[in-house]
């Protein structure tokens, strides 16, 4: 559907102009129509260029009678940029939250994994003691060393700080 945003913006501003001064009408219309258009364009993969162009055309046409039209068009461009900026911020905040959540998960998995290796080590000790496996008990220091090496390997490969942005 071509020019849908142009028409929507035009209709919206013309309606608002009956109740509000031009600047206010413009602000409300950008908030209502452009923000919706921006959301939709992200979902359907429409270029921001075509959406902005259409919306500007709608504003231009609806303010045909206004003496300060050029001024309002400039104001509209600022409002549109603010809306785009706001949307990017929202998206970045969401992404940042996901990154933090993933970092915390990584840390948790690392701690949990280290705990499992240590628990396995403890189990060998208990087993050797319970069952009087003296050779196994003697060799435990080697197993202990291996456990430390494996824990160190995990920490090196996936240490929490490595993923700091």
């Amino acid at each position: 559907m071509t020019n849908e945003y142009r028409q929507e913006m035009k209709t919206c501003i013309e309606k608002l102009l009956k109740e509000k001064p031009a600047e206010e009408a413009l602000k409300t219309a950008v908030e209502q129509v452009f923000s919706k258009a921006l959301d939709e364009s992200i979902v359907v993969g429409e270029s921001i260029e075509s959406v902005v162009y259409e919306v500007m055309e709608g504003i231009d046409e609806s303010l045909a009678e206004e003496k300060k039209k050029e001024l309002y068009l400039h104001r509209a461009s600022e409002l549109i940029l603010d809306a785009v900026h706001h949307k990017i911020l929202e998206q970045l905040c969401r992404d940042e939250k996901n990154v933090l959540r993933a970092k915390a998960q990584l840390h948790e998995t690392l701690e949990e994994g280290t705990g499992r290796l240590q628990a396995a080590m403890e189990a060998f000790r208990h087993y050797a003691e319970d069952k009087h496996r003296m050779k196994l008990l003697e060799d435990l220091h080697k197993t202990e060393q291996k456990t430390v090496e494996l824990i160190h390997h995990l920490a090196e490969k996936f240490r929490y700080n490595k993923y700091k942005t």
Binding site: S41, V44, G45, E46, S47, I48, E49, S50
Partner: peptide, 11 residues
Amino acid sequence: INNLSHESLAE
């Protein structure tokens, strides 16, 4: 495709 974003064209 005349009004598609670069991301959409990439898809």
